[in-house]
Amino acid sequence: MAASALASAETGNPGAGDFGHALAQRERRFAAALLAPAFLALLATTTFPLIFLVWTSTYRMNLAMPFMNGFVGFENYRMLLIDERFWSSLLISLVYTGTTVALQVAIGLALALLVMDMKRGQGWFRLIAILPVVLSPAVVGMIWRTFMLAPDFGIVDFLAINAGLGSQNWLGDPTLAMVSVIAIHTWQWTPFAFMVLLASLASLPEDIYEAARLDRATAWQRFRRITLPLLRPAIVMVVIMRTMVALTAFAAIFTVTGGGPGTATEILNLYAYRKSFIELSIGYGAALAVALLIVTIVISGVLFALRRAK
C-alpha cells in the first residue's frame, strides 16, 4: 500500500520547459528519500556514539562510585599516558595484529599458489576453507580452549606429549598463551586470505605466463616478476581488512584467556572492555577506546598510503 502511494506520487514525466533541471531535481529528491533511512541509522549507531564516546572520555564516570563523577577535561588522557597497562596492551595489540596478519597472508598466499596448480582436489580446499571463516570467533575460542588446548587430552597437548615436548600449560604460561591466541586467530582467518588470493590468482591473464614460459623464465622469476606485482592490490587489500579486524579482535581472546594470565594477552580492545564493564570505570574506558580509534586511523592511513604508492 505504502509503496503504491509513493509510486503514484512519482508518476508523470516532467513536462516541456526546463526538462533537464526538473529531472535532476526529481532525481536528487528521490536519492534523498532512498538514502534517508540508512543514513539516519548510521548516524544514530556510529556517528552519535563517537561524539558521545569522546564526550564521555572527558568525564570521570565510575558506575561503582557515582558520587565521584564529574567533568575532568583531559585528566583521563593524562592518566592514560602514564598507565603502564595501557602501553603494554598497545604493544600486545601491535604484536597480535602484526603476527596474525603476516601469518595469514604468508600461509594463505603459499597455499593459494599450491592449490592453483592442482588439477584435482581444489574443490576440497574450497569446501574446507569456508568452514573456519563462517564460525563465530567465540565458538572457535571455546573449542580451542577446551578440546584442543586442555592439558593431556586436548589434541594439541596430546601431540606435544607424543612429539616429546611434554605437556604444556598452553593458556597458563604468559608466552604460550600469547602464542596460542595468535595461532587460533591465524587458524580461523588464514582461509579468508587463501580464498581471496586464490580467486585473484585465478583472474590473472594467462598469456603473460605463456610469454614468460617462452622466454624461459624460472618459476621463481615468474612469481617475483609477474604474479607478485599483479597480485599486489589484492594482497594489500587483504592486509588492510585483516589488520582492522585483528586490532579489534575480542571474542577469540575473551573466550580463550580472558586477557590472561594476568594481562599477558590483553589487547587494547580487551583492556577498554575490562576497564569499562568489569571495573566499571567508563570514563577511562572511553579514553582507551578513543586511543584505539586513533591507533586504527593511523595504521589504516599508513596502509592506504602504501596501497596508493607504487
Binding site: 549507531t45 556514539p49 564516546l53 580492545n269 586511523i297
Partner: peptide, 14 residues
C-alpha cells in the same frame, strides 16, 4: 563508519 572499533560504540551505547 566501519573504522570505529566496536568497543568504542558499545561504551556510549550501553
Amino acid at each position: 563508519t566501519q573504522m570505529l572499533p566496536p568497543v568504542g560504540i558499545i561504551i556510549p551505547y550501553f
